[in-house]
Nucleic acid binder design. Structure first.
Lengths: 333, 333
DNA sequence: TCCGGAAATGTTGGCGTTAACATCATTCCA
DNA sequence: TGGAATGATGTTAACGCCAACATTTCCGGA
């Protein structure tokens, strides 16, 4: 309390405007029934003094922190980051503050991160680190704050906001099949990713539904490097590979190229996400686009509605979109 | 104040442990001279009740928010995002909270974002949106909170933390020259980016110093798309192109390919940043790596030292590193 | 046995705001 | 022209914590 400089308070403003501090508070909070002259004097005093409301005092008095925790994976990938920025923006517009923290996926890190968040008395939580660990830990912890699950596509969550993974996979397979492919292999996301699992099971059921052959799965970890390594395990009979994200598709194409296998002439590759680079890789990547920003905004809309007791917006999965470029061609033989 | 549920307070803990609330406070703040038995009872009461300290009350009483504002560009690029996550992590470890907000580069948006940040009474500010607008606005606003400028390389800033752009450009040109190139063209970042400007002027002076010919500059905006468009303006006499980031290099290589110009056989391309995809593009990209995470941590170290009145760590530019891959070859003729 | 001092703990007040209630001023109709 | 109803503003008491100071407890030495 000692040497800290404190700015002007409501009392200072009130004194200068010749009113009580409560009147200042009322002006600030947009109450009606303030005489125009009074309001003007208060406003003038505020700008003269450069007064800013003290958020700590406010939230102590109201018992509300106006802060929403956001858990983001600490890998700077395009998708989660886009959603995160949209979340932050929407939160700010709604009068909230985003309290974000980047975390690794292991249970200990997540627990530590959630501890930090809850310790800051958040009013709601956005979970964007889509692993099983996170889901478990959060379930255990999120006592009574509303929680939105982003990009997980996990149905059991209270409010899960996501692009329709099943539709995305279906679109991709449709496209491949329409080009004449039947032997399609899948490079999955990491095993602990709910989103990866969702794409994987959608892939399996789509293939079964069409009576197409089941080639072995190859597990990646979202990184281009893992796609590169997956190149060693592509089945020789496969004519197309569906990668669970664009980065892995890049790595795969690279590895294939090293073996003299050209995409799409010898084999077709299709990605997922449509990262901005996908339009300019060699070859430009055919992929399934997800609207990450829309996911973020919708999640915030849900949370804000929940906090204010309003009707919740529709949270059915957002549509996916197929982006046709040049990494898919008819099978070569 | 009405229907808000409030958790247990220090008084509740104190009552349960049979001590005064101040003793609880002392235990929580790690004071010495607490009898072991007392401390244990307090700790037990805390965990029984699931007590958490109220940050708002704490910061009201101490006059310190323990929050540091972070301004990030709202484009989810690898570099800034990596630094941002490192900043967040370091802040958390240092007992601070990152209050981040993503913003566009225009003056109005930046002003709005800074207003939001200062309104939450931040104790320090990390600026990571590296445009002139940001620098101006921030200068005007940042009354007396310490401000760290990330990735700007701007010397005039109080504390500017960055990778050595001049060295990076020099490494790139060295490499090109050692392979026999003399006619090197540069695709710059957007005009309002201080970092882009820095690379550009380093490029100019390096070329002059060696007495190499000056080809016209091509301005990009960091996006792969702009690199693609820049492909139309590459000088026919150029044997190598230095791109101010990797994404633009990708776009450029794509455009060149469409004109039947092969990289690196007909022309060499070198990037900047070393994004994770750079190792797996076609061809794999030779580039200059920046350690974005290190930049982030260092910035926080500076700020924390400044806030606690300690000696500031060394903020001289961090080293850049040349990553040689396959997009550079000797000139074809 | 008593006392001084250090160690351990308690008490009080205030941080800046909002909520609830109290008061003063005005208006309008009987 | 008085008084009730309404409108505009003021007063007081939390909110949960930390800082400063006050008090109690404990210990060893005279």
């Amino acid at each position: 309390m000692a040497n800290v400089v404190r700015g002007p308070s409501m009392h200072d403003v009130a004194a200068r405007a010749g009113v009580s501090h409560q009147t200042v508070s009322r002006v600030l909070n947009g109450f009606e029934g303030i005489r125009p002259g009074t309001r003007e004097r208060v406003l003038a005093a505020i700008s003269d003094l450069g007064y800013r409301r003290n958020v700590a005092a406010r939230s102590l008095a109201t018992g509300r922190s106006q802060a929403v925790g956001v858990l983001v994976p600490d890998t700077p990938n395009f998708g989660p980051t886009s959603s995160f920025y949209a979340v932050e923006r929407a939160l700010r517009d709604a009068g909230f503050q985003a309290l974000s923290t980047a975390t690794a996926n292991d249970a200990a890190s997540v627990d530590e991160a959630l501890d930090f968040l809850f310790g800051r008395s958040i009013e709601a939580l956005v979970l964007m680190a889509p692993t099983r660990n996170v889901l478990n830990v959060a379930d255990a912890r999120a006592n009574n704050v509303p929680v939105a699950y982003l990009l997980t596509g996990d149905e059991r969550a209270p409010w899960s906001v996501s692009v329709d993974q099943g539709e995305g996979v279906r679109l991709a397979i449709d496209h491949l099949v329409s080009m004449g492919h039947t032997r399609i292999q899948h490079i999955t996301g990491p095993g602990d990713s709910t989103e990866g699992r969702l794409r994987e099971s959608a892939f399996v059921s789509e293939m079964m539904r069409r009576g197409l052959p089941r080639l072995p799965m190859i597990e990646g970890d979202w990184s281009a490097q893992s796609g590169f390594e997956a190149g060693e395990h592509v089945d020789h009979s496969a004519t197309a590979v569906l990668c669970a994200n664009d980065q892995m598709a890049l790595g795969l194409i690279h590895a294939l190229g090293l073996h003299g296998i050209d995409v799409p002439r010898h084999i077709s590759v299709i990605g997922f996400d449509d990262i901005p680079e996908a339009a300019h890789t060699m070859p430009p990547l055919t992929t399934v686009r997800q609207d990450f920003r829309a996911v973020g905004s919708l999640a915030v809309a849900v949370l804000v509605a929940a906090l204010s007791g309003e009707d919740l917006p529709d949270t059915s999965p957002l549509p996916a979109e197929l982006i046709v470029r040049e990494s898919v061609a008819p099978p070569s033989m």
